[in-house]
Design a binder for these strands. Structure first.
Lengths: 349, 349
DNA sequence: TGTTAGCACTCTCTTTTGTTGAGTGCTAAT
DNA sequence: ATTAGCACTCAACAAAAGAGAGTGCTAACA
């Protein structure tokens, strides 16, 4: 559907006004605020046309117009220009990442908070399961008489530590030997590639120190066991409190619960997203729970796996700003990855 | 102030009803629901007396009575019996702690979630700064060519890991030697007892491997630097959504923000609390932000330092249940500590 | 003297009714 | 094709009316 310039201007005015105020926009307001050289009556006619093709709608007869989801879609696809964060903001973020980031979990914190602070929407970051990270080393560390710590380190950092009991006869050199066995066997493999059978072979090969190895293997096993431990990190969920569309306590409650402690959000985000920044407006979302919200979402690749970052907000969203911010952040993440060899991802600094 | 039995019964009826319904309680309701052998008129007279001494109040002339904070206080001090969780619930918690708890951060998760789930209030746990935990060992672990991981382990678990660069000439045995030096020097000391001067001495004693030691010391240093890293863990904040007193969006927003991402709650809790389970009702709280909420709070000792666990909810709170639950949990925590020698706290299983 | 029934009174809450004003759609003039 | 003019619509707000729950007081009663 192609719109003439005037209709586009009117559509844009309505969208900008509505996004800013959450109120229906009347014909007078369009003329007044956007200094078009036409009368309110003309705007009314044009608006009626825009309503006919489904880009605007009226809450009731005597109200102004609000953009429909279809209208937002047209705007996003054909008219919108992304608005990036200021250079200053970008610089602050980049600085922060250089200064204080040790491993992936830090990246995620910093990026998440940046996204939500800059946009005033809720941000989410999905980190692929640690199962897809590359085994780097397993360390056995004596803690005290009869106890040791199993430490599993991958390219995204220290992903687990767990205590095991060890026979008193085993000293720290023995532990070193055992660690080395693991490391030689597994280094560089993805955890998902560690078949149970591999673990089994190791079990059988190493009759000595059997119990220690058993316990270490079990620790690794338990990592592989956890069905799907994608992590979701949500920031700025309370930004939703400000949005008038969620002033209804019931809605608010459902939304905050969604963002709540259980990480149920990840089941609700789309599996497939298109390259670059993908935007899902309201009903376009398949999950029932977010059909009155919009997503601005982008994928990033880490160790060959797909992670996601994005923003979630009301349909009445500043898509230009949201998309611009997500895009910028995505670029920074990719840039950081580019600067790290695949052998040296753990500490990305 | 001593109340006769009938007044006590009436006060209790009003409190129980009001807590359950959040509505003012009328004289008829008291008679009906609690089968007292007196007429509504008599109850009215008694209620008037209770109002005179400030235990009840009337929102307006023609409404029933609600308990005043003073009334709640009397009830809590002189009438209430704690209601403990069911044996089954306690058993589940104890089981869980035995099965799956590796270190302090796990305890805190499990306990927090238990408190909030059982009571339907928001729970908080304050964990004293790691600075007060006992240094157990510092481990230097080779990660890859030129890089090592500094791992600081105390009696509450692995409290930091950080990457440092190491000269290529240093091998893993060297790292072991260096770790041992740290361990001999510091084992068993509280981090707060590690004076900067101690670190300095170590620096000077060890001319060899200077850089590695420098970097490790710096990691320790940074732990001591962080001003006050008491941690606050909040669970079940969204339970507040259900309370009618917070149906006002503004209030709700302030409260949730308080529980929000920045952990500002810890500045608001009382410094001094009495032994056992302490209850702070409404205005009794010194902090402005929680003057319309109540706290049920208890202290626990870990490594000589005071931590706190508790619940926060509306003034109209089921104090008996809240206090009983906090008390039970406190007992379990103490029990666990009793079963662990002071040398063996890291993994409390 | 303590208790109770009866009753007028009070005050919130809900519903109803009236009013206002923003905004529209249509028509006729430009 | 555009616009001024005007009657019409409908949500939002306010005032008025009605209902109901609960009280305080008085007078009678055990």
């Amino acid at each position: 559907m192609i719109l003439d310039e005037r209709k586009r201007q009117i559509l844009e005015s309505v969208i900008k006004d509505y996004v800013a105020t959450a109120e229906p926009v009347g014909s007078r307001a369009v003329v007044r605020k956007h200094a078009l050289n036409i009368s309110a009556a003309t705007v009314r006619n044009e608006m009626a046309d825009l309503e006919d093709i489904g880009y605007l709608e009226q809450p009731h007869t005597s109200a102004g117009r609000i953009p429909s989801e279809k209208g937002f879609r047209y705007f996003v696809d054909c008219m919108m220009e992304n608005e990036n964060p200021t250079d200053e903001q970008i610089e602050v973020l980049r600085q922060f990442m250089n200064d204080s980031i040790q491993e992936w979990s830090d990246v995620v914190q910093v990026v998440g908070s940046f996204l939500s602070k800059v946009t005033n929407y809720a941000s989410f970051i999905i980190v692929p399961s640690v199962k897809f990270s590359q085994f780097q080393s397993l360390q056995l560390i004596p803690i005290q008489e009869g106890q040791a710590l199993v430490l599993v380190i991958t390219d995204v950092g220290v992903i687990m530590h767990r205590k095991i009991s060890i026979p008193k006869s085993i000293n720290s050199q023995d532990l070193g030997v055992i660690s080395d066995i693991f490391n030689r066997a597994f280094r560089g493999k993805k955890l998902t590639e560690l078949q149970r059978s591999d673990l089994q072979i190791l079990r059988e090969e190493l009759k000595i120190r059997r119990q220690v190895i058993e316990d270490s293997l079990e620790a690794l096993d338990s990592l592989l066991d956890s069905p799907n431990d994608e992590k979701v990190i949500i920031n700025g969920a309370l930004n939703m409190l400000k949005e008038p569309e969620f002033k209804d306590l019931d809605k608010l409650s459902r939304i905050l619960t969604l963002f709540g402690e259980d990480g149920s959000l990840k089941d609700i985000l789309p599996e497939q997203i298109k390259d670059g920044v993908d935007i899902r407006i309201g009903q376009e979302n398949t999950a029932e729970d977010i059909k009155e919200m919009s997503l601005v979402i982008a994928g990033y690749r880490t160790a060959g796996e797909l992670g996601k970052i994005g923003l979630i907000g009301p349909v009445r969203m500043e898509y230009w700003k949201a998309a611009g911010t997500v895009e910028s952040v995505l670029n920074i993440i990719n840039e950081i990855f580019k600067n790290t060899t695949s052998d040296n991802k753990l500490f990305i600094k």
